[in-house]
Design a protein around this nucleic acid. Structure first.
Lengths: 105, 105
DNA sequence: GCCGTAGTACGATGAACTTCGTACTATTAC
DNA sequence: GTAATAGTACGAAGTTCATCGTACTACGGC
């Protein structure tokens, strides 16, 4: 089967806290990941985004983004597909994501 | 004279970087300060905002907020009056501040 | 002048975080 | 089954950061 999609632990919408979200976004690498996810639109395999860091560091950052409620990740085969939780973030903190993505660079 | 208002070093609008802003907002104490500044509207003496931290730590946080371009501080007598740089932030990152202030707690 | 007030500067300390390498698991392809 | 791929888990190293106390500066009032 190729369609197996397993769930990973995520905070529910009302468990998302602004502190954690801001902390997650405050790292340059993670901010870049979020920008790329926003640009690419739909879900993306973890390794797709180019970054000057090792595999394990990437895993670390993706975990922090997921734990904070910024991203949603599902397992599909050997890959993990990650996407932005746009709806949740826009509902909880309307404008926040837009503002961040509007930044020059 | 009571009207003396001295300038302190601040980044100009186009020197404000999203990385620094997010880093500044990522600390709970600083986030609380920003929330209070937004609630109180206009400029506020540094000591006005109640916080469970020492004087020197407060100075430290205010410096980070100022250096990041989140707040504007002027000296007036023995006090420093701090205010949010709403216009600049709204121009550079439209929605960001609104989103943060909309957060539950 | 003298004292109180508001806040800074500096150095230290301990916690948190980013980063890495290595070892490991799980799935797909041959 | 074997090998390759995608990613995790864990421990270590180095850095950054929040916090504090103390010492200091500057202004205002008496």
């Amino acid at each position: 089967m190729t369609e197996v999609v397993q769930a990973l632990p995520h905070p529910t919408r009302d468990e998302i806290r602004i502190d954690a979200v801001l902390h997650a976004l405050a790292d340059p690498m993670r901010l870049h990941m979020v920008r790329e996810l926003a640009k690419l639109g739909e879900g993306v395999a973890c390794g797709t985004i180019e970054l000057p860091i090792s595999k394990s560091t990437r895993t670390h950052h993706l975990r922090i983004l997921r734990d904070a409620g910024v991203t949603w990740t599902v397992q599909s085969g050997t890959s993990r597909i990650t996407s932005l939780r746009r709806d949740d973030l826009d509902t909880l903190f309307p404008g926040l994501l837009t503002g961040i993505l509007a930044a020059k660079k």
